[in-house]
């Protein structure tokens, strides 16, 4: 399955690069100048097939899609090495959306605490690895999902035990990021008395992995997408012990309750991107095989 994905992705890459070449004859020089940023060869949206009507959409700043994002959750959103350029899966996705909608995109870095309170106040929508949940749907609306995510368990590379499910974490000390799906899930396991384990809940996901490296904890429970990125960058430090494929989570763009016009436009854009195989390509780029 994975190999096929790569094949598809590679072909896609070629098609996209060919397409972009043919569309912009001067690309050779300009892309060389752009490539000072290592994300310049990240997938971009293919040229718009049919323009999406955004006449009914009300934006905080006309002509610009303002996006709330908590930068610091690699590989979804992070700063490039220069410390100011936002990069990541969500960032690319937002830029692709902008192209589709014919809007500038403006990222507004904000803390996760209270990120949803800022919708329609500081920004039009939130694209920040937000899981679509029934609870959240009570206070905001979501676009169609743009990526699937699973809960995963990461252990040290030299871990010898076997973990086939969350119940196998019984008696272990685990780390997770506070107020995330992982946190809710594991607290659920513990508070219902299903298993007993010691939870180290951290503000940042990096703290969890440092704790794992330092031997403070036995395992990290985290989004599979995030896990993939850590595994890809440090394969001799960490390994994936378990991934729960049974209950996928979906990430969506969060918007204010009344902003259905924007929702319609974004869904249309996502549909077009889907058709252009943008997502497979981007997943391959950011999360590897």
């Amino acid at each position: 399955m994975k190999t096929r994905l790569i094949a598809v992705a590679l072909t896609l890459c070629m098609i996209i690069s060919l397409a972009s070449c043919s569309n912009t004859p001067t690309d050779g020089t300009s892309s060389a100048a752009d490539s000072s940023q290592d994300t310049s060869n990240a997938p971009t949206a293919a040229p718009t097939a049919e323009p999406i009507d955004i006449s009914g959409v009300e934006l905080i700043n006309a002509g610009t899609l303002s996006i709330g994002v908590e930068i610091g959750y690699p590989p979804f959103e992070d700063f490039a090495e220069d410390g100011t350029t936002p990069i990541g899966y969500d960032v690319d996705f937002a830029k692709a959306l902008g192209e589709k909608l014919g809007l500038e995109v403006n990222f507004i870095n904000t803390a996760w605490d209270g990120i949803f309170q800022g919708i329609d106040v500081n920004y039009d929508c939130v694209i920040s690895a937000v899981t679509i949940t029934e609870e959240r749907k009570e206070t905001m609306i979501f676009s169609d999902p743009y990526i699937n995510n699973f809960q995963a368990v990461v252990v040290k590379a030299d871990y010898t035990g076997e973990i086939n499910g969350f119940t196998d974490l019984d008696g272990m000390t685990i780390a997770l990021q506070k107020e995330t799906t992982s946190d809710k899930l594991m607290k659920d396991y513990v508070s219902t008395g299903t298993i007993e384990c010691t939870i180290s809940a951290n503000e940042k996901v990096t703290t969890c992995f440092t704790q794992l490296t330092n031997g403070e904890i036995d395992a990290v429970v985290v989004d599979s997408t995030v896990a993939a990125a850590y595994l890809a960058s440090d394969p001799d430090k960490y390994k994936l012990a378990f991934q729960d494929e049974s209950e996928p989570e979906q990430f969506g763009v969060a918007m204010g309750m009344d902003n259905t016009a924007l929702q319609t436009a974004i869904n249309k854009a996502i549909e077009q991107l889907e058709q252009e195989n943008y997502f497979e390509d981007s997943v391959e780029f950011w999360f590897g095989a």
Binding site: E196, T198, N214, G215, E216, I217
Partner: peptide, 24 residues
């Protein structure tokens, strides 16, 4: 822990589930 190659949790009993908190 990285400089001196130890873990805070390791300073307490390994069977103690609270060791991670005690270390912190």
């Amino acid at each position: 822990p990285i400089f001196f190659n130890f873990s805070w949790r390791g300073l307490f009993s390994s069977t103690d589930p609270e060791a991670v908190y005690k270390g912190a």
